[in-house]
Design a protein around this nucleic acid. Sequence first.
DNA 1: AATTAAACATACTAATTGGTATGTTTTACA
DNA 2: TGTAAAACATACCAATTAGTATGTTTAATT
Lengths: 195, 195
Amino acid sequence: MSKAAETRQMILQRSFELIYQKGYQATSIDNILATTQVTKGAFFYHFKNKDEMGLALINEVLYPGMYATMVKPLLDSHDPVNEIYAMMRNLLIKIPFLRAKYGCPAINLIEEMSPLNESFRKALVRLTNEWQDAIADNIEQGKVKGDIRSNVNSKHTACFIVAGYSGIRNMGKAMGSGCYTVYLQELKNYLQQLK
Amino acid sequence: MSKAAETRQMILQRSFELIYQKGYQATSIDNILATTQVTKGAFFYHFKNKDEMGLALINEVLYPGMYATMVKPLLDSHDPVNEIYAMMRNLLIKIPFLRAKYGCPAINLIEEMSPLNESFRKALVRLTNEWQDAIADNIEQGKVKGDIRSNVNSKHTACFIVAGYSGIRNMGKAMGSGCYTVYLQELKNYLQQLK
DNA sequence: AATTAAACATACTAATTGGTATGTTTTACA
DNA sequence: TGTAAAACATACCAATTAGTATGTTTAATT
């Protein structure tokens, strides 16, 4: 990776962390410059404006990260229901970067920016759909295997599960991580009942 | 109500609508002044600062509104499961003020302000808990009546339901109101299975 | 109706915002 | 190794921010 590409990457990474904790609009460019030690000239050489940086951040940092932890574990599944649960448990309590107080970076961006920026919205819908589809595919495989009732609507169920995750991330911000374990218990019940 | 009280109430009401659509931090005081036709002197006569106004807004506008639509319909329930579903359906698709694009004002505030302002967080936790408790009480009544299995954990179930609502409000921002009906169908399944 | 405090108005401020104009320094390559 | 373009640095700008200082008007009570 060239030095310029490294600078760009570093700006995206640090901005991602700042925005995760403070929100997109509340994170100023000067704020990013201070934590990256990059000058304004360098920043605006790499990105036309703040929103273009934000979009790059979604596609180049958020998307790969979420694909690895949310989608990949569900592909070529052997034990569908347990894999969905394990993925969720991993996501909620095994990734040190994600803290209850700050929620989930993807959910945060959807919440804050979807109504304000159409480009952001579309990029974030893509992430959500990919996750939802992976969950639905997983459930379909469970149906083929006979692990899951044939009258389960996989897409609807996937939507319900995604909503649950999104919601518990929101609750966690106000209530702390305690509600994660409660949620996981009920998720297990819900998944069990699909059998 | 005295004229001063009316002014104060009007500021809170209009601010509530603005903040609902743009977010708390993105709504400037000048912005509020423009839509209320109130001058800066009047604003700062009624509120010490922006955050105090925000807190008043939570307690005096958000709280009563949400109590009426989310808590009250669940008290003294005759048909627990159906009342939870009806409340949710009403909340999601029967209140014209609430639009999918802008989500739920309470959820929005939790998401944006919980990590940033401890007073806001506490006030919002109170709302959430009150709703969650009303749902749990409703389920307990269902257990007494024999409508709901005795091995259902009412508090956990309530948490799961609240998370679901919060999450579908988030998804609705990105995907539109279509996902509401999908969610409601799966919620019905979930509630049915508590019987 | 007179009075006085409550209620509101106007004009300002210092700090911060995203972004630009105009430089200087690196770095890759001929 | 010379050179041109890529990569970065500095100094600025106009607009916006929350908040204040200092007024004037309105309204409730005697």
